[in-house]
C-alpha cells in the first residue's frame, strides 16, 4: 500500500471555500502520511465536512489544491476513485434494500465479487442482519454497514465523516475497535469527529479546526504536552484539607470544588508520593489535561460539540 511516488498519501495546500460571506474553509493545509490515522477535530460548523469533501474530490475548492495518492482530486478523477473508500455523514443507502443487497450493490459498482462483500458483512458483525432492510437497522448497525460499503473494494485511503455521531457510548466503543482494525491493516484513514476522546483514542495526528481554520496539528499527546497544563489531583477533603494540601511540595494551586480538594501540579509523581505517605489515596482521582483543554486554550472558549 503506497501512493506510488513515496510522497504523502494526501497533500492539501491553501484550501479555501466560501459560501456567500462565510469562509467555510479558510486557507487549510496539511499532509497525511501513508498508513496514518488522521483526525480532523472540531465543533459542528467548524468546516470539517467541507474540508473532507474537497479532499475527496466531491467539491470544487475556491482556491488551493489537493493531491490524493499523487493525483489531483478535482475534477472528478475516475482512476483515483477505486483507490479510495468513502463513508458520508448521512446514511447514503439505496431505499428498501437489505443490508446484503446494499453491500452487493456497492461491490458491483467497483466490480467486486459478492463473496468478498459477504466477508465484509461478517467483519463488521452484520451477518445476522444481512436480510434486514437498512431502514430497520440501528444507528450503529447502519454506520457499520456504511463503513463496510466504503471498504468493500479494499481501498488504500478511507474517509470517514463523523462515523460515531449520534451513537450511544457502547456503540461508539464497538466502532472504535473496527476503525482501529482498518488502520492496523495498513490503510490510511482520515476521520472527522467532534468527540475529543475519540480523536485522542484513535488518531496518530489530529488537526483541530474552528471557524474554517486549522488551529493546531500534532499527535494528541504532543498537543496536550505542548499545552503545559497542570495535572489535577482530586482527593477527599476529609483526608486532605486545603491547608494540608498547600503544604505539599510541588503543588501550584489548591481549590475546593465542593466535593473534593483539587491540587494542581506540574510534578504529579512527587505529589502523589507525598499523598501516599499521608495515606490519602482512597477515592483519589488524577485528571491530566485533555484535548478539551487544548481547545479551550486555543479558542478561549469551552468546547461544545
Amino acid at each position: 500500500m503506497s501512493s506510488g511516488n513515496g510522497g504523502p498519501a494526501i497533500s492539501v495546500r491553501g484550501l479555501r471555500k466560501a459560501y456567500g460571506d462565510l469562509a467555510a474553509v479558510d486557507d487549510v493545509s496539511f499532509d497525511v502520511a501513508t498508513g496514518e490515522f488522521f483526525g480532523i477535530l472540531g465543533p459542528n460548523g467548524a468546516g470539517k465536512t467541507t474540508t473532507l469533501e474537497m479532499v475527496e474530490g466531491l467539491r470544487r475548492p475556491d482556491a488551493g489544491d489537493v493531491h490524493l495518492l499523487g493525483e489531483p482530486t478535482w475534477p472528478r478523477n475516475p482512476r483515483l476513485l477505486p483507490r479510495i473508500g468513502v463513508q458520508l455523514q448521512a446514511s447514503a443507502f439505496f431505499e428498501r434494500l437489505t443490508a446484503r443487497e446494499q453491500i452487493h450493490t456497492f461491490a458491483a459498482l467497483y466490480g467486486v465479487p459478492p463473496g468478498q462483500a459477504d466477508d465484509w458483512l461478517e467483519r463488521v458483525g452484520l451477518t445476522d442482519k444481512a436480510g434486514s432492510r437498512t431502514e430497520a437497522l440501528s444507528g450503529g448497525q447502519k454506520q457499520r454497514l456504511a463503513i463496510a460499503c466504503a471498504l468493500v473494494h479494499e481501498p488504500e485511503v478511507v474517509f470517514l465523516d463523523e462515523p460515531t455521531a449520534a451513537l450511544d457510548p457502547q456503540a461508539r466503543r464497538n466502532l472504535w475497535d473496527l476503525l482501529r482494525s482498518l488502520n492496523e491493516a495498513g490503510r490510511t484513514v482520515v476521520l472527522t469527529t467532534h468527540y475529543m476522546d475519540e480523536a485522542e483514542a484513535l488518531c496518530d495526528r489530529v488537526a483541530i479546526m474552528d471557524h474554517g481554520k486549522v488551529l493546531q496539528l500534532d499527535s494528541p499527546s504532543a498537543l496536550v504536552r505542548g499545552l503545559d497544563a497542570p495535572v489535577r489531583i482530586f482527593v477527599s477533603p476529609h483526608l486532605v484539607t486545603a491547608d494540608d494540601a498547600r503544604a505539599v511540595a510541588g503543588v501550584d494551586a489548591v481549590t475546593d470544588d465542593g466535593t473534593s480538594t483539587v491540587l494542581s501540579t506540574r510534578s504529579p509523581s512527587a505529589v502523589l508520593t507525598r499523598l501516599a505517605e499521608l495515606n490519602a489515596l482512597e477515592g483519589l482521582q488524577v485528571k491530566a489535561a485533555t484535548l478539551e483543554d487544548v481547545f479551550l486554550d486555543l479558542t478561549g472558549r469551552e468546547y461544545r460539540a
Partner: peptide, 18 residues
Amino acid sequence: QGWRNSKLLRRLQLSPVP
C-alpha cells in the same frame, strides 16, 4: 430528491461508475 438528501448521489459520484 431522496438520493440527494441521503447523499447517495454524492456516494455514487465517488464510485467509479460514470
